[in-house]
């Protein structure tokens, strides 16, 4: 059994230390070591986007990042999107627009959608579709997801 590495990170604003094997992905560390199971594994090869997190300001599929690479990094997961008991406008918009069905892809979509609006507050429909193309949803056909992001963009502009 290979030895474990001590990794120090900031996750959702908290200093979090964890031990991981060199072969463990960040996704595995988040889910199985730290207990943040909101990020989902759909493919483990970077194609479904269900494990998307913000990693030092960039969105990444956490299944393609090693746990040891998180040393000194700042990470936001789906668990860190809401402000306490107040949902982020993106989360609220997904609910109000019925933009989820089974919900397994939803955490990844919400992390990606928020990252888009943080960077581009008024995206066009094409920009939304382009940005979200690394997140697969098998239930919705994306229509209501795109509308939820558009709705959230408007609400965030008004706020």
């Amino acid at each position: 059994m290979p030895g474990k590495t001590h990794v120090q990170t900031i996750i959702n604003g908290e200093h979090i230390d964890f031990l991981c094997e060199p072969r463990q992905s960040l996704l595995e560390c988040l889910r199985d070591v730290i207990g943040l199971t909101g990020s989902k594994e759909g493919c483990n090869d970077g194609n479904c986007g269900a494990c998307t997190v913000v990693f030092d300001g960039r969105i990444v599929t956490s299944c393609l990042v090693l746990g040891v690479e998180a040393e000194g990094k700042e990470i936001t997961t789906i668990e860190g999107i809401a402000d306490g008991n107040t949902l982020h406008p993106v989360q609220q918009a997904y609910l109000e627009n019925a933009a989820l069905q089974c919900g397994i892809c939803t955490p990844g979509f919400i992390v990606s959608s928020k990252a888009l609006l943080d960077q581009n507050p008024t995206p066009t429909e094409h920009e939304i579709r382009y940005w979200l193309a690394n997140n697969l949803c098998r239930c919705t056909g994306y229509d209501k997801i795109v509308r939820a992001v558009q709705d959230a963009a408007v609400k965030m502009q008004e706020a």
Partner: peptide, 23 residues
Amino acid sequence: TSPIRHDGADKVTGRAVFGPDFQ
């Protein structure tokens, strides 16, 4: 009518327990 679904809050915050999340 189209109310917000009852499991919605759990599913947009990552709290919903899907099969692989079970411990």
